[in-house]
Design a protein around this nucleic acid. Structure first.
Lengths: 233, 233
DNA sequence: CAGTGGTCTAGACCACGAT
DNA sequence: TCGTGGTCTAGACCACTGA
């Protein structure tokens, strides 16, 4: 009905994906070069290039100059995770978001933290512990360290009205981050904060955010029991 | 020294990212349109377009026709996970990979499985349980159901010489998949297989792979205690 | 060396959507 | 309505790298 958007490169991409999925082009097989495909599809070579490039970025094709383009034997699936502010996650579920500041200290972090953040062993950092709530029930427990050398304004902020995550997005910029997901058994403090039994399996996200070579913040988030993180291939 | 690759679009992208990170272009701010940037950078508009398009896909820019391009207020970080065959993960860590088939049955799955796979409630599926080993130590325990209506050849395969994952990649194609990550306390069977105590927190990946509207396979993988999944922003 | 993909350009038309 | 981004083209040159 509605023709909507003549994205020729996308129809080329769809057709190529169809041929791969239908095994018309088998794993390991060389496919025609860009110029031939362009005349087959009746479009410019650049259009074919864009279609194939995106498929190669997804990991389904292996492209090499002179050698041509092949269907990969064992595709490495690329799943994309959207890591947003926790408030957004909660509100996207149609729930009411609240947060409680549990602790706020300036102190010398344990060696594991200063090591991971590459701060000097004697440096004082700002530590925050907070609870995120969805519909008044515990959603996640957060343990964060902020590098006040990089973000000195943080020492003047109470973090009672705004979560540290959102405050940092407004006041600090970053260039990249490292994320790790794991599972841990809840200790007494975490169990108490999240309202579960000690030893319950918790889904954990660790994140260190960098601005160039300097760590801006390190945060460990313990999600309430039963939390799931979903994505698609 | 080596100039290597004149990718003008990438130098444009680097410069734009620098301006965003340096807050020269602040969150929420409108940046110059493509034509102006092109003349500023001394390149074609298409080159600017490619540079900005990729940044927008990463979630740092919001682009709208007529309205122009803005730096987003709260960037939603996109993290990409590479989901490969477990053997590859193990070997990438420099460890020896082995696997053991623990169970192989054709039976009617529980309602949760047939429901998730959208197979008829009375359909028989092939169930496999297997252990993945790294340097002879348990790495992950896998519980899999295969839809033999979609992949009938599976009924003739023993899965003793090749893991089900790699066999499926060779013999079945898929169009998309759903993935969920969570944490669970190990039950007695899982604890025994993985060599941990009952109740240990395990990192779990659930995956359903589809070919069009039909589920090819559903797998639940319990990783050994302490497993971490890493990525970057 | 030569074939293939990677990139760039100038110009063009179009889809969208803010105003 | 009309400014902006989205896409397409034909042609060109270049960077790789397999043979």
């Amino acid at each position: 009905m509605t023709k909507l958007q003549f994205r020729k490169w996308q129809s080329v991409q769809d057709e190529v994906l169809r041929r791969i999925h239908a095994r018309e082009w088998k794993p390991g097989q060389l496919i025609p070069n860009e110029a031939d495909l362009a005349s087959d599809f009746g479009c410019a070579r650049v259009t074919v290039n864009r279609a194939l490039r995106e498929i190669a970025e997804k990991g389904l094709l292996d492209r090499r100059r002179k050698a041509g383009t092949r269907v990969v034997l064992q595709p490495v699936a690329k799943a994309t995770l959207d890591i947003s502010v926790i408030r957004m996650d909660v509100e996207a579920r149609g729930q009411r978001y609240d947060h409680q500041l549990i602790q706020r200290d300036i102190s010398k972090p344990p060696a594991t933290v200063s090591g991971a953040m590459r701060t000097s062993a004697s440096a004082q950092l700002l530590q925050l512990k907070a609870l995120h709530l969805a519909d008044m029930l515990p959603y996640a427990f957060e343990d964060r360290w902020i590098n006040t050398n990089i973000v000195p304004e943080a020492t003047a902020e109470t973090f009672t009205d705004i979560s540290s995550n959102e405050w940092l997005l407004k006041h600090a910029s970053y260039t990249h981050g490292d994320i790790t997901f794991s599972a841990v058994n809840a200790n007494k403090d975490q169990a108490e904060a999240l309202g579960c039994i000690t030893g319950a399996a918790l889904f954990v996200m660790d994140r260190i955010t960098w601005n160039g070579d300097f760590a801006v913040t390190k945060v460990r988030i313990f999600f309430a029991q039963g939390h799931r993180m979903q994505t698609v291939l």
